[in-house]
Simulated assay, not measured.
Amino acid sequence: MDRLPKIALPVIAVIIVLIILISKSAVTIGSGEAGVLYKTFGGGVVTDKPALGEGFHIVAPWNRVYIYEVRQQEVFEKMQVLSSNGLEIKLDASAWFQPKFEDLGRLHQEKGESYVDRILLPTIRSAARSVVGRYTPEQLYSSKRDAIQQEIFEETKKIVDGQYIQLNEVLVRDVTLPPTIKEAIERKLKQEQESLEYEFRLVTAKKEAEKVTIEAQGKADANRILSASLTDKILQDKGIDATLELSKSPNSKVVIVGSGDSGLPLILGNN
């Protein structure tokens, strides 16, 4: 009986050590995450193998796993940039991005966990300054918002693609101009709109006048053609037809006593 405690103590110690080792060796990677393995005695960051995916993993207790979010993320940035004529513009933008899963080891080794602050944000700022500097405040305020957004995206993507970052979209959320410039642009746009409306009214009036002229010309041409086609015989026949119709009227007593100078019957008398 005295020997049992002496045997049990080493077994318990071994079990405790195993539990500690397993707890330090077990790594659980959550949904939308991936792990970069760092081998303390095996060359440091593992870059020639895929990152550790979601789920439970056992690694040597002397190694370490750095966990990264690999789902799409969003970062916001407020910037002050200059337009083509040197005016200060405030730009609010955001970027949708995610680290490239297949290059996660290299990203960790070369850029580190702060890659957003070290690489992505400075690149967005640089691209925004370059792009906005090509446009006037009027263009920024009105018609070029989509073009600016696309150009910032393309210039940023061209750089960060080589830095193991996948850029999905850049969104320009707000462009703020100096108040005096904004008011001047709004007045100019209003004047341009009023001018366009006035021109439209002039064009409409001109087209209406042309329509009336064309209709009048058509009637004149029709009358000329009709006059040219009427002969004395046709006029006489028309007159006879009209006289016969008039003679059928119940309100008139028609007496035909002869013909007039034109050769048409004469109608005398009515009630």
Rank of each mutant, 00 (worst) to 15 (best):
V75D: 00
E245N: 01
E110P: 01
K182M: 05
G218W: 04
K100V: 09
E245G: 00
I181F: 04
A128N: 10
F97D: 06
F101V: 12
G112F: 09
A26L: 15
G32A: 06
K248N: 05
D232M: 11
Q139V: 02
V11M: 13
L121P: 05
T213V: 11
Q72N: 12
N251M: 06
M1C: 10
K233Q: 15
A205Q: 15
V45P: 01
V75H: 00
V46G: 00
Q72W: 01
K207G: 07
N271G: 02
Q150Y: 01
S143T: 07
K158Y: 01
T243G: 02
K24D: 08
I89D: 03
L196N: 10
Q72Y: 03
E210C: 05
R129I: 02
I19D: 06
E215Q: 13
V203R: 14
G43S: 08
K6R: 14
K6I: 12
A128G: 05
K158R: 11
I12N: 09
L104F: 09
T231L: 07
A34L: 10
A8Y: 14
P10S: 10
S23L: 11
K49I: 03
I12L: 15
I12W: 08
L196T: 11
L235C: 04
Q150S: 09
S262L: 10
S142A: 14
G43C: 06
G112H: 05
N251V: 03
S252I: 12
L226I: 12
P10Y: 09
V27S: 01
T136S: 15
S252L: 11
K188W: 06
A128Q: 08
D117F: 01
E194T: 07
Q139P: 03
S229F: 07
V27Y: 07
K157W: 04
S247N: 04
I148N: 02
R224N: 13
K188T: 11
S31F: 09
A8R: 14
R125F: 02
E154P: 06
N251I: 07
K49T: 12
E151R: 15
K39M: 13
L120G: 06
G105N: 02
G53W: 04
I124C: 06
T47G: 03
G112R: 06
Y141L: 06
G162F: 07
G218D: 04
I119W: 03
V36M: 11
A93S: 15
R71E: 12
L37Y: 04
Y198K: 15
I89T: 10
I165P: 00
G105V: 05
E169H: 10
I240L: 13
A216S: 09
K238D: 04
A26G: 13
G263W: 02
E54K: 15
A95K: 00
I58R: 01
D48G: 05
K219V: 05
T231A: 04
S252G: 01
S83W: 00
E197I: 13
F41L: 15
S130L: 08
V255G: 09
S114A: 14
E155K: 15
